[in-house]
Design a protein around this nucleic acid. Structure first.
Length: 987
RNA sequence: GCGCAUGUGGCGUAAUUGGUAGCCGUGCCAGACUUAGGAUCUGGUGCCGAAAGGCGUGGGGGUUCGAGUCCCUCCAUGCGCACCA
């Protein structure tokens, strides 16, 4: 081949790989395994842009490298194909989401194929495929049939709980961990009670423990989307997808008891090789806080209020108790006039949406209940208030107000004139009139038995006393909430449950999948039921064991988007298994993911849920690992770089013609920058007038230059970045872009139209989307792959820019020329390599190997360039050298290396080659040009043998002319000599 | 407010982990080949300065023979969390 024809080469090898099944992988116990996974995409209608493949390319390089290193590499890809956008599109167009999803997947696949990934496509999974979601449903049933045993600290089948109840009853649960309800508050019952309970009663009790359960709870309801959302799908009070307002609504919902795993999800982060910021995000989200729960008796009432506090040491500083508006026992506290007043306040507070509540955090509101609590230690009366700053969902929904040492309590106390009682010594510089003293340090005062203690010790001692006196106990609390699991939507996995006399029953596992029914419209029913209620047949016929038009009603909500993605990494191991979600042989071989690549936006969603399900499946003995991915890398986002043109707004004197009659006039960016300059103004006005003259030869219209009052106005406009090269607008393409631009006029600078630019998110509406397809067409996939890595460290976000892609492309052409001359003759020789050549290539072998092991993919690219440049200079075309370069480069540029590998005479794929072994001997130097510094300032270099000792070099250095000059006749106090590094003299 | 991350030429970045700051690429300047453009190749290019030389890794301070790298402090940008008791 005469020159590097990337299009031909890439197609040839992509076809060859497919035909030869080069990337097919099977379990092979004789080889170490390596599981490399990229987070699978949601196939959106927009297709892939250049940002998507960044992570895919990096993981592909790693996967290919590991294979060259002798690993058996699992590197699959699939689609997270259930989800809201396809359904929203279906609502708008009537197209079945399955159809649009199928089309989108086809487009994704086409784009992915062009980039040359080493995926084993035989293992593809799609979450919307019934063969796949059959097992998602199966896992749901397992979750439903499990409970979390706090004593063994793991999930167990629900029968073990039922057996326990029937054998020894229930004496209250070990609640040393308050997770927001692993157990509902059931009164204790005996074994006999249990055995006498009705079926319904037993079920009610058990449902308080199941890991998948129905409950009435306040949820994030999004009216525009017509569904509830989980906490991670709500950002700043609006839906993450679409940005629609979210309300709080009390609904009966399927939930997942992820809170049972809060402690393990938190603790196990420790051992994971994930970025610190990602782990920190998860820690914040789980939100562990340690403290105590304390019971305050209510005066003249037969019950008490339990509060959670992290500062039990400040208990003597309590000046009020505050409960949430939703507090369960609030009505019981109220008497007389207070009933109406307080309930009115409560109504008002409850109806404020989450967003309103967050919008004015500063506004303090509350109401006195008229009731008093009794301080457990002092016996004093403490007023009980309702306050909306207290959250119903956190802790017990009640707090003890310590206004001197908590800023929120302080603000509340100030507002309602409640006492402020300092119990920790306030430093002199702190003014307790303006702010509370929240720091967890200092000595306790006014606190009886705690006086004189340090805060830390006081906390311990306070808990001791609280427990001794039976007022409460030390507790750990988590911010993490149970995850709402039902969605009032069509395009998701049906929840495999039907209702018999109102009691949920699971569909038998052998009757799965419960297939999504066909419906006429993808909207909720007229009476607000989810779309599935539209299905003609959506009843479970128990005797026939199938969906039917009669029988028991089947659940009409579907699973959320994260259900299918919470276990997909397991299905790739054994995607065609139809008797099990994953076969034991496969899962015991592949175990879990060695390298997981994906965006950090999944930190509190997918990455928490997949850990939860993995731990659950592990507890139940289905899989051997309790974490999905040991190593995780968040690839940075590639932002768009938008380009702008500046359209002149016509405003002229004389006449009343329609503005439309003048052609659109665009002003180059550099002139816009200096628009206030009178010269630029008059330049533009002259041009405008010349255009006006053409349309109005009589000259009744004209732009009037008013130099001290600029009249040039313009509007900036996004222009399609694909018509712009290095900010220079392609005028022809631009004029053809839109009908109304066909007669556009321009004011150039240096004969060019320069566009303005800005970094924004890559999106269609901003006309800044660059697809990999275009890059592949212009430069080839190998250049795209190298260039995306060359952009910088993988984790860093950066705007897309093609500045520099030429350089990477040129490198591949240079590589080609090491193999072929200008006439297309192979010029590779069998000559033995010399020392310089071996040194060059072994430097590369070392660098590339280390870089890939450290996931520093960007730094390898310059190493390749350096090596090829060196070999060019050395005029080296030697087989043994070139062969090693190809193997090193293969993970980055698989097509050209396959082609040249064949050029070298190999018949098999280079993917089956072995990564060359680095030999340090080739890098050994016998001399080194030592930098010589005087007082730390580099002055000269002197060459010495690497064997030279300090004693040997000193006289030579001191005799050096330049050194003499800088020493200015002084004698150095000290000479520092570091072998192979530096010589430094202190004067 | 709290937490995490980042800050180096015109630009993307690199730096053996405490040892010659700026590799490689781009851009720019000069040149070769070419009718021209493109492609290719050669040389130069941190800043100030005519030069000698000085300055230089967000600012200030410190440790050290020596700091982009370690410590303290401040600033800027990005991300996450945020009435979580």
């Amino acid at each position: 081949m005469k020159e590097y024809n990337f299009t031909e080469i890439e197609q040839k090898w992509q076809n060859n790989w497919r035909a030869q099944q080069v990337y097919k992988v099977t379990e092979n116990p004789n080889k170490p395994k390596c599981y490399v996974l990229s987070m699978f995409p949601y196939p959106s209608g927009a297709g892939l842009h250049v940002g998507h493949p960044l992570g895919y390319i990096a993981s592909d390089i790693y996967a290919r490298y590991k294979r060259l290193k002798g690993f058996n590499v699992l590197h699959p890809m699939g689609y997270d194909s259930f989800g809201l956008p396809a359904e929203q599109y279906a609502i708008q167009t009537g197209q079945h989401p399955a159809v649009t999803t199928e089309n989108n997947i086809a487009r994704y696949r086409e784009q992915l194929d062009k980039i040359g990934f080493s995926y084993d496509w035989d293992r593809e999974v799609r979450t919307s495929n019934p063969e796949y979601y059959k097992w998602t449903q199966w896992i749901f049933i397992e979750l439903y049939n499990s409970w979390y045993n706090p004593n063994t600290d793991k999930a167990e089948p629900i029968d073990t709980l039922a057996k326990q109840f029937s054998a020894s009853g229930f004496c209250g649960v070990d609640d040393s961990v308050l997770t927001g309800g692993v157990e509902l508050d059931f009164p204790p019952f005996t074994a006999q009670d249990w055995n006498n309970f009705s079926e319904e009663k037993r079920e009610e009790v058990l449902s308080g423990f199941r890991l998948a359960y129905l409950s009435e709870a306040y949820v994030n309801w999004c009216p525009q989307l017509g569904t509830v959302l989980s906490n991670d799908e709500v950002k700043d009070g609006v839906s993450e997808r679409g940005g629609y307002p979210v309300e709080r609504k009390l609904m009966k919902q399927w939930s997942m008891r992820i809170t049972a795993y809060a402690a393990r999800l938190l603790n196990d982060l420790e051992g994971l090789d994930w970025t610190e910021s990602l782990k920190e995000t998860q820690r914040n989200w789980i939100g562990k806080s340690q403290g105590a729960s304390v019971h305050f008796n209510v005066q003249d009432k037969p019950f008490d209020i339990e509060v959670f506090t992290t500062r039990p040491d400040t208990i003597f500083g309590v000046s009020f108790i505050a409960v949430a508006p939703e507090y369960e026992f609030l009505p019981d506290l109220l008497e007389g006039d207070y009933v109406d007043d307080v309930m009115q306040y409560v109504e008002q507070a409850k109806n404020r949406s989450e967003r309103d509540r967050m919008a004015d955090v500063k506004r303090i509101s509350g109401a006195f209940t008229g009731a008093y609590a009794i301080h457990p230690f002092t016996g004093k009366e403490v007023p009980i208030w309702v306050a909306d700053y207290v959250l119903a969902g956190y802790g017990t929904g009640a707090v003890m107000g310590v206004s001197a040492h908590d800023s929120r309590d302080f603000a509340f106390a100030k507002h309602f004139n409640l006492p402020i009682l300092p119990v920790v010594k306030i430093p002199a510089e702190h003014d307790l009139n303006t702010a509370s003293y929240d720091a967890k340090e200092g000595q306790l005062t006014n606190s009886d038995f705690l006086n004189g203690l340090d805060v830390k010790d006081a906390i311990k001692k306070a808990i001791e006393y609280i427990e001794k006196g039976g007022h409460g106990k030390g507790k750990t609390n988590f911010r993490l909430r149970d995850a709402i699991f039902g969605r009032q939507r069509y395009w998701g996995e049906p929840i495999p449950v039907y209702y018999k006399n109102g009691m949920p029953q699971c569909i038998p596992a052998d009757k799965l999948p419960l297939v999504l029914p066909e419906i006429d419209k993808f909207l909720p029913t007229e009476d607000g039921e989810p779309p599935l209620a539209r299905a003609e047949k959506w009843m479970w016929n128990e005797s026939k064991g199938c969906v039917d038009s009669e029988g028991y009603p089947i659940e009409t909500t579907t699973m959320p988007g994260w259900a299918g993605s919470s276990w997909y990494f397991l299905r790739y191991m054994d995607p065609k298994n139809n008797t099990d979600f994953v076969g034991q042989d496969a899962v015991n071989y592949w175990r879990n993911v060695d390298l997981y690549m994906g965006g950090s936006e999944h930190a509190t969603g997918h990455l928490l849920y997949v850990r939860f399900w993995t731990k659950f499946l592990y507890d139940r003995g289905f899989i051997p690992e309790n974490e999905p991915a040991q190593k995780l890398i968040n690839q940075g986002m590639i932002q768009g770089r938008s380009n702008f043109v500046y359209r002149f707004i016509w405003s002229y004197m004389g006449g009343n013609s329609d503005v439309e009659e003048f052609p659109p006039l665009f002003i180059s960016s550099g002139l816009i920058q200096k628009i206030d300059n009178p010269e630029i103004q008059s330049l533009i006005i002259t041009k405008a007038n010349s255009i006006i003259k053409r349309f109005d030869p009589k000259g009744s219209l004209m732009m009037i230059p008013v130099l001290d009052n600029p009249i040039v106005k313009y509007r900036s406009l996004h222009v399609d970045v694909n018509m712009v090269n290095n900010d220079i607008l392609d005028i022809k393409a631009f004029m053809a872009w839109r009908e109304d631009f066909k007669n556009a006029e321009f004011i150039f600078e240096d004969g060019k139209y320069i566009c303005g630019s800005e970094v924004e998110k890559m999106s269609k509406s901003k006309h800044n989307v660059v697809t990999p397809d275009n890059i592949v067409a212009d430069y080839g996939a190998d250049t795209l792959r190298l260039y995306e890595m060359f952009l910088g460290p993988l984790e860093q976000s950066k705007p897309w820019s093609t500045q520099g892609i030429e350089g990477v492309h040129r490198f591949l052409k240079k590589l080609w020329r090491l193999f072929y001359d200008a006439e297309g003759n192979v010029i590779v020789t069998k000559e033995a390599a010399d020392k310089k050549e071996l040194k060059s290539v072994h430097k590369l072998i070392k660098k590339v190997g280390e870089d890939i092991e450290h996931f520093s993919f960007n730094t390898s690219v310059p190493a390749f360039m350096i090596c090829v440049n060196e070999l060019m200079d050395l005029k080296c075309n030697k087989h043994e050298i070139l062969e090693n370069i190809l193997i090193c480069l293969h993970p980055y540029a698989p097509h050209i290396t396959e082609e040249l590998w064949a050029t070298l005479g190999h018949s098999g794929s280079i993917a089956d080659a072995q990564f060359p072994v680095f030999n340090a001997e080739y890098l050994v130097e016998d001399s080194f040009s030592y930098p010589v510094s005087i007082n730390g300032k580099h002055r000269t270099n002197i060459e010495f043998s690497l064997n030279a000792t300090q004693a040997e070099i000193e006289p030579v250095v001191l005799a050096d002319e330049l050194v003499q000059k800088w020493l200015e006749g002084k004698t150095p106090k000290k000479i520092i000599f570091v072998k192979g590094k530096i010589i430094n003299m202190v004067v």
